[in-house]
C-alpha cells in the first residue's frame, strides 16, 4: 500500500500513457490518433513536472523584493521546487501545439484527397 501511495504520480502517468498509446495504435480515425498522441504527450509532461516536485516547497520564484541583493548562500534550496523540468516542459508544450497543428493540416489534406479520415477506408481506396 505504501508502494502505491508514495508513488501515485507514476501510476497516474502510466495509466494516461497507456490510454494515449492504445488510442494511437488501435483507433482507425486519424483525428482520434492525434488526440491519443496529445494524451500521451500530456502524460509525459505530467511525469516530468512531478519529478521536480518537493514536499512543502513553493513555486520557483524568489520570495524577495525585485532588486534586493540576497547572498546566494542564504537562499534555501528545499524551499523552491526544481525549475529545470518546468523549463523543459514549457518548450515541450509549445512544440506539442505545433506538432498538433501540422498533424491536423496533414489530416485536412488527406480528407481533401480521399474524402474520409478513416484509416481502413483510405487503405481500401489505395489498394
Amino acid at each position: 500500500m505504501e508502494f502505491i501511495l508514495s508513488k501515485f504520480n507514476y501510476w497516474i502517468y502510466i495509466i494516461m500513457m497507456m490510454i494515449g498509446f492504445y488510442a494511437m495504435i488501435a483507433k482507425r480515425n486519424l483525428v482520434k490518433k492525434v488526440i491519443g498522441m496529445n494524451i500521451f504527450q500530456t502524460a509525459i509532461i505530467l511525469f516530468y513536472v512531478s519529478i521536480g516536485a518537493k514536499k512543502g516547497a513553493t513555486i520557483p520564484i524568489l520570495e524577495a523584493a525585485h532588486h534586493a541583493k540576497i547572498p546566494p548562500e542564504s537562499i534555501e534550496v528545499a524551499k523552491y521546487i526544481n525549475p529545470l523540468p518546468h523549463v523543459l516542459m514549457l518548450t515541450a508544450i509549445v512544440v506539442g501545439v505545433s506538432v498538433t497543428g501540422v498533424a491536423l493540416a496533414l489530416i485536412i489534406l488527406i480528407y481533401r484527397r480521399y474524402h474520409t479520415v478513416e484509416e481502413d477506408e483510405i487503405l481500401r481506396q489505395l489498394s
Binding site: 513555486i59 520564484i61 525585485h66 514549457l90 518548450t91 508544450i93 509549445v94 501545439v97
Partner: peptide
C-alpha cells in the same frame, strides 16, 4: 522575468 509567465505564455 519577475512573475509567472514569459514569452511562450504571453505569445499564446
Amino acid at each position: 522575468e519577475a512573475s509567472p509567465g514569459g514569452g511562450f505564455q504571453g505569445g499564446v
